[in-house]
Design a protein around this nucleic acid. Structure first.
Length: 593
RNA sequence: UGGGGAUUAGUGUAACGGUAGCACGACGGUCUCUGGAACCGUUAGUCAAGGUUCGAAUCCUUGAUCCCCAGCCA
């Protein structure tokens, strides 16, 4: 029985699995697998499949295998085999069923293929790749039988054995299933089962020179592993009849293939091909560039596995390719980070502030709350002194309406410290404010005024002599368009890369408690956003990525103000034009008079 | 033009013949030592047309739109 508070996922796959368990199908066993091809790094799209495959197994008390679907040595590399495992572990999943390699089944697959040839259900075809394509027919026209289709079983057997023995060059022959060249489903028009590829395999070395095709291999892999539910991409829906056909011919354990849709995220791309292009064109720094939707990129950016999995749970399982708003993913990241990130003060664009009435050599240690969302996180001490930095944005000489922060003659609170009042500014030759002179009220130590007077703003700050220097990298969407792939014929999708997707700030000032923090650590810079220590950090240089900004209602007001101004200008122009027209019309009238 | 799928507010997702709900976003507000968080409110939807039914997002019919398939890729 489930409690009312317990969320019961009701997607169509879980419904099927639950029914199977209820009907004691497969002895009520649930066994899934996640079968990536080790030819690239995992991305957010894979995370959906991972959460479905591993998640469903876990929910039904079953197992999930991790299986490297390494049947094409040309594309695959050991580097990816390692990276895939690392990324899945990071996401929080464990291959309870074990780690497998499709290539470990090559011997059994070969034996099965021999069986099919003997049964007259497969044959060696000498047609060239080009001919095979022509013989396959088109959408409207059925295919034609290959002239080798009815060659004697013994001949096929002999040729297949010699293919395996390495007697023939790449591409000279293939093994094909004998099904139906007139099938409306192309996958059933005598699909290729084996091709000759004299290539070094990352897992099997050079022990094989014929390699099985996906359709032939996959069902066997599932079957041998005792998989019960083979969950895959919608793209394989057309392949299911073939998946079923092979297993039926073999008469072996027959898992059920169920397809679900992948999804798109706005402002990014997730195709392996496109990600590769971005990396190779140098538009990003590598596969782990924090702007990329690769799991390594998201991790470096500071996204949490918990947030990603919660997001996956929310978007659910469906059968059509949806385009999910990145803001939804970001929502789950903020939600998680808000609860878990220690608060710290950091100034991105420092403005020097001298507290004129503060003693020269004095340092205060002030108590600061580490995480208001988590009492157990405790408190820390933050040093305060005569010279501090505040955010340039937090001061304006001519403050507009609704700007509550510092200005000459105004009093604000420094978080956990004192109320300060700005008395004067120092400018450089270009008229830029480069320094503020303020006075503090000693009575307000800790941030509260004993007389009960209130301030409208609280600013974050860092003591200048104690500050840590840091490089901070700010990120924005990698693409300017919601759907970067939606480009015209003459356009290059790579041109859609957002030139402002990264902004590097140097000379940022961070409170000293962050000294020695390990790469990967996440914090919230109060009033700024969530940040993550980058692995580029060295002993004498902090490098920090901004994961996401905090929601900024002042930025919203600013935007609205700008919009209002624009609208006003437009209105004024219109009025002017109208007035001019009126004058033009009136003049002829005057003449008439 | 063959075959296989899909379609619920701007986006994502529930409702499995019985009051179309939730989340994100947007907008407005309350509160606040983070203009954060939290809280409250507003906004907006069943692809279309018929039919069955007391009652249809759900069942039937017809149509529209979108996605996938002609690799010796997976």
């Amino acid at each position: 029985m489930t409690t009312p508070t317990e969320e019961k996922p009701t997607d169509f796959i879980r419904t099927i699995v639950a029914d199977d368990v209820a009907n004691n199908k497969n002895d009520a066993r649930v066994h899934t697998r996640f079968p990536p091809e080790p030819n690239g790094y995992l991305h957010i799209g894979h995370a959906k499949a991972i959460c479905i495959d591993f998640g469903i197994a876990a929910e039904f008390g079953g197992k999930c295998n991790l299986r490297m679907d390494d049947t094409n040595p040309i594309a695959e590399e050991q580097e990816f085999v390692d990276a895939i495992q690392e990324d899945i572990k990071w996401l929080g999943w464990d291959w309870t069923g074990g780690l497998f390699f499709a290539s470990d089944y090559f011997e059994q697959m070969y034996e099965f293929a021999v069986q099919l040839v003997k049964d007259g259900k497969a044959y060696v075809d000498d047609l060239s790749a080009e001919d095979i394509r022509e013989y396959r027919g088109t959408l409207n026209a059925p295919g034609k039988d290959s002239p080798f289709r009815d060659r004697p079983v013994d001949e096929s057997l002999d040729l297949f054995e010699r293919m395996k023995a390495g007697e023939f060059p790449d591409g000279s022959r293939v093994l094909r299933a004998k099904i139906d060249m007139a099938s409306p489903n192309f996958n059933m028009r005598d699909p290729v089962m084996y091709r000759i590829l004299h290539a070094e395999h990352p897992h099997r070395g050079d022990s094989w020179c014929i390699y099985p095709m996906y359709d032939w291999a996959h069902g066997i892999e599932d079957s041998l592993e005792g998989v019960t539910h083979s969950l895959c991409d919608l793209d394989f829906e057309n392949h299911r009849p073939l998946y079923d056909w092979f297993l039926d011919q073999l008469g072996v354990h027959h898992p059920q293939q169920i397809e679900f849709a992948r999804f798109n995220l706005t402002y990014t791309v997730t195709s392996k091909r496109k990600l590769k292009q971005l990396v190779e064109a140098g538009l990003v720094s590598g596969w782990d560039d924090p702007r990329l939707p690769t799991l390594r990129g998201l991790r470096r950016r500071g996204f949490t596995a918990e947030a990603i999995c919660a997001f996956m749970k929310h978007i659910g399982v469906n059968k059509f390719i949806s385009t999910v708003d990145s803001a939804l993913l970001e929502h789950f990241v903020r939600k998680d980070l808000n609860k878990t990130s220690p608060r710290v003060m950091g100034v991105l664009k420092p403005l020097k502030v001298v507290i004129d009435n503060y003693p020269e050599d004095q340092t205060d240690q002030l108590d600061a709350v580490n995480n208001p969302e988590d009492e157990a996180a405790g408190t820390r001490q933050v040093p305060f002194s005569k010279v501090i930095y505040i955010e340039q944005e937090d001061f304006m000489e001519d403050p507009p309406k609704k700007f509550f922060r510092l200005s000459v003659g105004r009093e604000v609170r420094l978080r956990y410290a004192y109320f300060i009042t700005c008395n004067s500014v120092v400018k450089d030759d270009d008229g830029n404010v480069i320094e503020l002179h303020c006075t503090y009220d000693p009575e307000t130590r800790g941030g509260d005024a004993p007389d009960g007077r209130r301030v409208k703003a609280t600013l974050h700050w860092v003591s200048a002599p104690h500050a840590l220097d840091a490089e901070i990298r700010l990120y924005d969407h990698l693409f300017t368009k919601e759907n970067p792939s939606d480009v015209g014929k003459d356009e290059n999708w790579l041109d859609g890369v957002n030139p402002e997707s990264i902004e590097v700030l140097t000379g940022c000032k961070i409170e000293p408690s962050l000294a020695g923090t390990q790469a990967g650590a996440r914090v919230q810079f109060e009033r700024q956003g969530y940040f993550c220590i980058d692995p580029d950090t060295t002993e004498d240089k902090l490098v920090i990525n901004r994961t996401l900004s905090l929601k900024d209602s002042w930025a919203k007001i600013q935007k609205q103000n700008q919009q209002k101004q624009k609208n006003q200008q437009k209105q004024q122009q219109k009025q002017k034009q109208r007035a001019q027209k009126r004058q033009q019309h009136q003049q002829p009238d005057k003449k008439k008079m």
